[in-house]
Amino acid sequence: MRYHSPTDFASASALAAGASGVTRFLSGGTDVLVQMRAGMVLPDDLIDLKKIPGVSDITQTAGGGWRIGVAVPGIVLGAHEGLKADWPGVVEGMNLVGSTQVQGRATLTGNLCNGSPAADSVPGLVAAGAVVEITGPTGVRTVAVEAIPAGPGKTTLAKGELISAIVLPARGDNAGDAYLRFIPRTEMDIAVVGCAVSLRLSGDTITEARVALGAVAPTVLLVSAAADAIIGTTLDDAALDALAAAASAAANPITDKRGTKEFRVEIAGVLAKRAAKIAFARAKGETA
């Protein structure tokens, strides 16, 4: 195994583009190193990104959004007051990952690029409308977060491409987001279902919404039917039921060691309702 520690994204991209065997980027390493130790993935080239200047920074964009470096660990996100005030749902998704020890290393980018359908931070990013900046052999491009996952363990990134930052849009007024996951325990577990809701209000009426589901399909799902079910409503019981029905209908899970298909379908609806209520309360300025 060859270990590389480039100091800019272009070199990282070039290294990856030139590598012939199994290649992995090393961000927090909480997936990569675990997979290596288990003998599941034995990279020929391991490209550490933490030596690239700026990868550990969270900065405000000109438009009032947030640019998050690819090596920012969960614990730093959780301690960032500005980010938490704008996107509590994104931050709580990331903060659910693992334990205190894992939080010290694990990153949003790694969570996204590991390609797990159950990744906890991804539905929040998708609901938020976050984008990723990709550096590749042909330069830099920007795509929506939901365009990255391509199925369990797979991404749409081409050979030589890597993510150089995650960018959250400006939050704007009267808006809130939330992420909930279902696990049978209280922590240290993998989501059986995850759901993020982001919405904006005008008075008590929802004017914009995005609903994303995790762990119920090969990739994260952005469910426009679920959003439509609550847009224009005050999140009354009928809207909540319609939301749950749309979320359950969109879910396309499998039965595995973590839960059955029927259960996941049902819980997708339950979590959508609960997450929407929290997002709604947050949009109203309540600190839930």
């Binding site: 049978p184 325990r185 209280t186 922590e187 240290m188 577990d189 993998i190 060691k257 973590r258």
Partner: peptide, 8 residues
């Protein structure tokens, strides 16, 4: 232990 769920 992520999937063999002893109580935490």
């Amino acid at each position: 232990f992520l999937d063999y769920r002893v109580p935490v």
